[in-house]
Design a protein around this nucleic acid. Structure first.
Lengths: 167, 167
DNA sequence: TTTATGTTGTTATAGTATAACATAACATTA
DNA sequence: TAATGTTATGTTATACTATAACAACATAAA
């Protein structure tokens, strides 16, 4: 199953981001309904905040946003929502940043490869079959059973080249 | 440049680990001498502690070991040694575990792919050219300049299969 | 030996995450 | 609807991970 083109590129700074957010939330709602899990108001709001842009966002940033909402929240509040969203494949954790980013094709048990731009801070999620199969081949060769993958490639995206990113 | 076989497999529990440690330390010493950087007593000791086994080890575990040595150390002490060892390619950081593991072929700007066994806790460092080239190809395709890679595959290694690892 | 540089010591604090228990909301069935 | 069980959230405290800032010490170079 291949992904639409939008998933495979870094978004430009002027893309219609409202569309990204709206679509992600719609898909999340539909997905949770199908699975019979509850996308509560809080979880919905956290997901929306994560989708505020394409940059991975930290738990304590989310906490601060919730506080600005007038919601006096403590760390467990946001971490529990993050756990729910992670378990249901609605977001991914970027280990190298201690941060979280929205997933725009929930439900697939996909490989979740990330290219992360040090210039604009954006993360692009890829699902490259060749990368995945190269890893699967190696695992098979040494008798390793894969459970989780964390593939995070950091660098400079095409939009940030030539800008002041000390690239 | 391909790696010796030992680098591409999970070590068995009964392998001659003294050999691993001794060789890693010898290589580190030689490498630092060549580069003109100082593998001080402290840094040497931290590296030796990291090589105590093939499991990634946390900074505060190292701190505790140093304390058992009689060395009353504080966090910055160990983090500075870790920074030095990282900068010189003598260890790698496993982001998904907040932990550090020895590198047995320092100096190469290698891809550092890790398979991490949830059963025995050991990490095997790979340098699979097909994985690396699949990533490089994709990066080229989208105009992305790679600076750092973090590839961490978690699962169950061949030795742990059939044991009580709820695999 | 003086000076410059690099390393380590020390204290304080920032940043990330979870344990444990209380309360509230929701769902089910009687 | 009331009673009950279950899930979600609130709340407090604390554990774990990492760095800032400045002092003291050690090594290398002049």
């Amino acid at each position: 199953m291949s992904l639409p083109k939008r998933h495979q590129q870094f978004p430009t700074t002027d893309h219609d981001h409202q569309h990204c957010v709206a679509q992600a939330l719609r898909e999340a709602e539909s997905y949770c309904r199908k699975r019979g899990v509850r996308l509560t108001k809080l979880r919905h709001r956290v997901l929306e905040l994560i989708w505020a842009n394409h940059r991975p966002v930290g738990a304590y940033d989310l906490l601060q946003q919730l506080t600005l909402d007038g919601h006096k929240a403590a760390p467990p509040t946001v971490y529990r929502s993050l756990d729910f969203l992670l378990e249901n494949g609605l977001i991914h954790r970027i280990n190298s940043l201690n941060a979280f980013v929205g997933c725009d094709h929930p439900g697939l048990d996909h490989a979740a490869q990330f290219f992360i731009c040090r210039g604009c801070g954006q993360a692009a999620e890829l699902d490259d079959a060749k990368i995945e199969s190269a890893i699967a081949d190696h695992a098979r060769r040494i008798g390793f059973s894969i459970e989780r993958r964390s593939i995070e490639i950091t660098g400079i995206c095409t939009h940030c080249k030539g800008k002041n990113c000390d690239a």
